[in-house]
């Protein structure tokens, strides 16, 4: 009856399921746009990823005789985020395999929720990128119900064509080829508003991330010397909005200190811009977040608040 523990005894009404299911809801606008832009195939991808993630979590927790928390929403969020990160033409079995890998190796191997070092959805994406590079880098657009292969705006930019073919308005609404959940800045921002309103994320990571990318691409991204880059194009395209608002802000794999969070965002922004501008891939959001995930313990350590009277 009486549990003895040392202070402080802070209790919060927020539980993991409420938080996680709210995050899930905040992703739904983007999911809707995905189905609108890419057709019913996007829905199948999302359903199989979410289903595979929840099932994997359940099976592993059952086999290792741990407490079963497969329905707390965290696995569902991982599955949905992974589905957001793949192309509409990806075979379903590949998406399911990625989802199984994300939960099994990205999360449960480390001991389950709260103990994983890397964002599980991004672990799944990295696995798929390494395993099926051809299928993962072929993007599609929906033309009268059929998926037609087309390069992404960032791909076109990387391969050195002249002006990008899509305008800012299209980039904002999301009707262009890309990963199914990353294209619509509008829908992602609506979801981000929900998270901000619920107080689950702060502006520190997303803003420092996006501003860094904008600055870097403005200064170095242009073909007419410094300060001529099209920064608006860079922040509206690719997976930046999805990554900055929903994946870099994952509570488990981002710093808890305020300064640490800002440093984390800046680091993500620097790596993303470096990959986009000078690297081999057209897009660098997922790898930049994974790399910064690895640094989180050090960032928290550097920016650890001092105890009263402690020397610097």
């Amino acid at each position: 009856m009486f549990v003895m523990s040392s202070s402080p005894h802070i209790r919060d009404r927020e539980t993991i399921p409420t938080i996680m299911w709210w995050v899930f809801i905040s992703l739904l606008p983007a999911a809707g746009v995905a189905v609108w832009v890419f057709g019913i195939r996007a829905l199948y991808l999302m359903l199989s990823c979410v289903g595979a993630a929840v099932a994997t979590e359940f099976i592993i927790q059952y086999l290792t005789k741990r407490k079963i928390t497969a329905l707390d929403g965290s696995a569902a969020v991982t599955g949905l985020l992974l589905a957001f990160n793949v192309s509409a033409g990806l075979p379903l079995w590949m998406a399911i395999l990625g989802s199984v890998f994300a939960i099994a190796v990205g999360k449960q191997v480390f001991g389950g929720i709260g103990r994983n070092i890397f964002n599980p959805a991004l672990v799944g994406r990295a696995f798929l990128m390494a395993s099926f590079p051809a299928a993962m880098t072929r993007f599609f657009i929906n033309q009268n119900g059929a998926l037609v292969s087309q390069a992404t705006p960032l791909n076109i930019l990387k391969e050195g064509s002249a002006a990008p073919l899509v305008g800012y308005k299209t980039l904002f609404i999301g009707n262009y080829p890309g990963c199914i959940g990353e294209t619509s800045v509008l829908a992602l921002l609506i979801g981000a508003m929900i998270l901000l309103w619920r107080g689950y994320i702060s502006l520190r990571i997303p803003l420092s991330y996006i501003v860094t990318v904008a600055l870097m691409t403005w200064v170095f991204g242009g073909s007419n010397g410094l300060f001529s880059g099209d920064w608006l194009f860079h922040i509206l395209s690719g997976g930046l909005m999805l990554g900055a608002w929903f994946m870099a802000t994952d509570m488990v794999t981002s710093p808890i200190t305020r300064k640490g969070q800002i440093a984390f965002g800046i680091g993500c922004g620097l790596i993303t811009s470096i990959i986009r501008l000078w690297g081999g891939y057209p897009e660098g959001v997922s790898y930049s977040i994974l790399m910064m995930n690895a640094l989180v313990p050090y960032l928290d350590n550097i920016f650890k608040p001092r105890k009263l009277g402690e020397r610097r």
Binding site: M94, S131, F132
Partner: peptide
């Protein structure tokens, strides 16, 4: 058969 390429790469060895 569609190969799962990651197993041919260094991370696959570690896995």
């Amino acid at each position: 058969f569609v190969p799962v390429l990651v197993f041919a790469l260094p991370p696959g060895a570690l896995l």
